Amino acid sequence: MSDSGTGFGATGAAVRAEGKTDRVVVEITDLFAGYLPGINIINGANLVAHKGELIGIIGPNGAGKSTLLKSIFGMVKVRSGEVTVDGESVVGLKSDKLVQRGVGYVPQTNNVFPSLTIEENLQMGLFQAPKTYNERLEFVTSIFAELGKRLKQRAGSLSGGERQMVAMSRALMMDPSVLLLDEPSAGLSPVRQDDAFIRVSDINKAGVTTIMVEQNARRCLQICDRGYVLDQGRDAYHGTGRELLNDPKVIGLYLGTLGAEDH
């Protein structure tokens, strides 16, 4: 495991495992960002995601985890530092342009159009490239097979876990090179939480580089290739999921409370 001063903590062997490559998809360098003038929530954060990796971001409440994702997706003002996607800066780009650049984002709440059907939600995810609908529908239903059987059902009638599936599917319709997930297990029952983590793994195994913010720290670290512990807006620790799970400092400072719900 590495602390934030020793680089990104990814080994070539770990990155290349299971079809992953050394190609950098997302890189955050010395990022400062915040909502209000003069007040930064992100304070010098660094992160890298290679092609095919599943990256987990954990940390205490108020650490800036969701803000970091929103900074990547153009929803928070970046004051200094750099965010690149496939080697090109995306700082200052609006969300629609980021989607065109291959960035998918699933917020924690209000992440479906409840008055629309599942099919209409998926079509909304593909409004920039509607001609590829059938091809992308085949892809998302290969991961979320049950959605394919219920396309005419209104999203507002779905359970929380089912809505999460629709939200992830809609973000996948544009064939993103990276998918940003903000606490996909939040508010779900323990059984649905397990299902959400399985689906995240399935998405990643299908070849989608994934960056996930998650409050259920232990479960997140169990499935991710590498993890970052965010504290006060900067990456305090990072390493493989296994390294962080077994590191005494991380256990003592973070996992004791962050993983309390995952016994």
Results as ranks from 00 to 15, higher is better:
Ser2Gly: 05
Phe8Cys: 03
Phe8Val: 05
Gly9Val: 04
Ala10Lys: 03
Gly12Cys: 06
Ala14Phe: 00
Val15Lys: 10
Gly19Ser: 05
Gly19Pro: 02
Thr21Gln: 06
Ile28Phe: 12
Thr29Cys: 10
Asp30Lys: 14
Asp30Met: 06
Gly34Trp: 01
Gly34Pro: 03
Ile41Arg: 06
Ile42Lys: 01
Gly44Tyr: 12
Ala45Leu: 04
Asn46Cys: 13
Leu47Asp: 05
Lys51Asn: 05
Lys51Ile: 01
Gly52Arg: 04
Gly56Pro: 00
Ile57Gly: 08
Ile57Ala: 11
Ala63Leu: 02
Gly64Gln: 14
Lys65Thr: 04
Ser66Asn: 13
Thr67His: 09
Ser71Arg: 01
Phe73Glu: 03
Phe73Tyr: 15
Gly74Phe: 07
Ser80Gln: 15
Glu82Ile: 03
Val83Arg: 05
Val83Ile: 15
Thr84Met: 07
Gly87Pro: 09
Ser89Arg: 04
Val90Phe: 02
Val91Ile: 12
Gly92Gln: 06
Lys94Met: 12
Lys94Val: 04
Ser95Val: 09
Asp96His: 15
Val99Asp: 03
Val99Gln: 04
Gln108Ser: 12
Val112His: 01
Thr117Asp: 05
Ile118Phe: 01
Ile118Cys: 06
Glu120Met: 13
Glu120Trp: 06
Asn121Cys: 09
Met124Tyr: 09
Met124Gly: 07
Gly125Cys: 08
Gln128Ala: 13
Pro130Ala: 03
Lys131Ser: 13
Tyr133Val: 06
Glu138Phe: 02
Ser142Thr: 07
Ser142Gln: 08
Ile143Met: 08
Ile143Pro: 04
Gly148Asn: 02
Lys149Pro: 01
Lys149Tyr: 02
Lys149Met: 02
Lys149Gln: 14
Lys152Arg: 15
Lys152His: 00
Arg154Thr: 14
Ser157Thr: 12
Ser157Asn: 10
Met168Asp: 11
Met168Ala: 00
Leu180Met: 11
Asp182Asn: 07
Ala186Ser: 15
Pro190Ser: 13
Val191Leu: 13
Gln193Ala: 15
Asp194Lys: 03
Asp202Val: 07
Ile203Lys: 02
Val208Gly: 02
Thr209Leu: 02
Met212Lys: 03
Gln215Ser: 12
Gln215Tyr: 11
Arg218Cys: 00
Arg219Cys: 13
Arg219Pro: 00
Arg219Val: 10
Cys220Ile: 01
Leu221Ser: 01
Leu221Asp: 08
Gln222Lys: 14
Ile223His: 02
Cys224Asp: 00
Arg226Pro: 08
Tyr228Lys: 09
Tyr228Phe: 14
Val229Trp: 07
Asp231Gln: 01
Gln232Asp: 11
Asp235Glu: 06
Asp235Val: 15
His238Pro: 00
Gly239Phe: 09
Arg242Cys: 06
Leu244Ser: 10
Lys249Pro: 02
Lys249Gln: 11
Lys249Ala: 13
Thr257Ile: 05
Leu258Ala: 10
Gly259Ile: 08
Glu261Phe: 04
